[in-house]
Design a protein around this nucleic acid. Sequence first.
DNA 1: GAGTTTGAAACT
DNA 2: CAGTTTCAAACTC
Length: 796
Amino acid sequence: MDVVPPELNSLLPDEIMDTEAIVTDDDLPAVCPAPPNPLETQDAPVPMETEVPEIVTLCTAAPSIPVQRTQALTTLTSTDSTPSSGTGSTGTQLLLTPSSSTMTLQPTSLTLTAPKPSSPQVTGSLQKLSTPLALPANHQLILNKVASSPGSEAKPTMLKPDGQKLVLTTLGKAGQPIVLALPPGAGKAGTMLSPGDGKGQPQQFKVVTIGGRTDLKPIGVQAVSTASQLIGTSQTAQQGQQLKTLQITKKIPVSTAAPVITKYIITKALNSKGLTSQTSVSPVVTGRVLTQSTPGTPPRTITVADALSTSGGSKVAISPLKSPSKLTVVSVASPSPTSPQKSVAVPLSVALGQQILTMQQSTPTSPAKAGVSLSAQNVKPVQTVSMGGVPPQFKTIVPLATPPNVQQIQVPGSRFHYVRLVTASSGSHTVTGSSPSSVAGTIQPAKPMVVNSAAVRMSVPIVSAQTVKQVVPKPLTSASPQVVTSQQQRLIMPATPLQQIQPLPPGTLLAPAHGQGNMGYAVLSAPYVTQLQQSTIVTLASNSGFSTPSSVQTQARLPLNGLSASDSTSRPRKPCNCTKSQCLKLYCDCFANGEFCSNCNCTNCFNNLEHESERLKAIKACLDRNPEAFKPKIGKGKEGESDRRHSKGCNCKRSGCLKNYCECYEAKIMCSSICKCVGCKNFEESPERKTLMHLADAAEVRVQQQTAAKTKLSSQISDLLTRTTPTISSGGGKLPYTFVTKEVAEATCDCLMETAEQAELSNQSQAMAERVILEEFGRCLKRIINYAGKAKTDCC
DNA sequence: GAGTTTGAAACT
DNA sequence: CAGTTTCAAACTC
């Protein structure tokens, strides 16, 4: 069994997990469908967003590349999702030619094409990257733009403020990591990545390196420096950004070769201002990196294909959450082709906020082909259905056509919840454990195609999505359904406290992975994980050859609502009790919050994966009625007003806005000018409100004090009794001291507290109260001793 | 826990 | 857009 290495968790930058660091952008479209793939005509055309997503395609240009499986990644092409895009003189090209002898890559070219005519930066600029890459020693290739158009680097303005830098890194395979960095100029091309929302958001710069040797850290460093340069040159606003490099070492079994130690180096840009919203991390999938979330950037599709033969095709979709939220990366296993030479084009489709990054594996049958073809068009496995007006958070990707088994793994101390999806073909692998030390062991040596992935959370901008894309499960078209012994799917899902994220509906995409790669990845939002937990897991287990379904059952289960136990306690979600709405109307809080119902008391609930189609219809209906239906009701008020206010205002008539019927009061905010309430008492100077507040505060303090007192008392009593009992005798002999249980101590505390309260209520003096309490305590002790003695006697 | 009240959502 | 109905949560007893 593969277990997500705990190291991934520990090594992942905090910012990744920090939802607060996520930048939200309402303008981002939820999902960017990948451009139709000419090669895969059977797929229905992917609906396009209103905003045309740009696509970045990484593909290997050299079909004839020597079989050394390694970096087939040769071409990076970013094009507008528009089919016709990409032609234009405006394209920017980056040429990369690895000079390192150690590199198995054929001289290739990295081409970035930004078809956006409107972006001046891109226009007519052809940039070449210095091909002679340094670092042959460590097998690292870092692409830097050697000659860039004068404007690109020199002019920070060239980059849109919110422009995002695209850093493509590595794919390195055994000891040959490659880092591709798109310089600002390229980023321009990157305009594709950062469409001009004009939000002025700082660029994000992330470098992720996967695979390669253990000594890759330097790469990260270098990448960092590069990134820093880029940042410094391209974006003035982002000065002071810091980069962190994470290194994750994994042993990745290769099909026929000995296991290779692969290191994941995640370099992230940190905003010196506090790591906040500007940080994002490129998801690392199966040794591939692909994505960057770019808050404020328009929908874009990035497709990357690399020559990694070991990985299975997969698609990754990250659905934007209503607000920053956690994303889950799910690896999807698919039948792997029999082709020994695993040259696989792996289109990765990831939707970040409005970006979709499509990873797909084309399963070439050519035995000796290291060549990788990759294009956005290969996104076929995933079908995106446009749901007009559906918010991004509802962007949904329908479960895999061939649902995998899911195994949930919770790594102690990790904020991520891992769920592994295991395809039916998987053997009887069992989870080896989540201990950090088992990293290398987490991957079955027998699984040649297993690729490591890192859990990455990306910042997902809030999208005011006008469209919803739904990914429909596609039938596996991959060639040979050869059964692979180790097809595994791993779902990595960070679970963060809900309060940190806006509840998000399923925004996930699970695309059937094709090809040899046994791993696919998808990003799931927590609700989906919950659903998977509820349904898919079991279902899949049943129909799969998975020999140890029980193991699935016994896997650490995700806490409710995708929250860890601690998280759940921090903000438990109230279960709904809907009876007539099928939980498909806004009456239902779960639905309104974009969550699946989980552990609710509802009847005839349709707010789950089993009724995804109905649910989507309902979502659409709600959005038709009110496009803002799923947006947070509590938002920022106008200038001069309170920071928080109800977006629509309340309409209370009888509650005085001082009961929880009032949405303003419930949100603990005061009514504003837009409220239409009658007899409102929920305003700053309201005496009633102040009284309520004081009462509430007093009550809260009282509860806290009582709790603290009880705890302390319990501890003291327990300690006292524990120490004294052995010597306490009743009728001679020692009493069993095990009778002082927690329950006994607590019961004693309850008695004392009750006595204290009665004394307080009867207005007794403190001295008197203390006396009464002590007397009660004495009685309690006596009773305890008596019972203990009796128990001893009975026992004897 | 049952019944009532309340206001948002849905409907007309 | 206004009035009415439906609905589920909040509240009361």
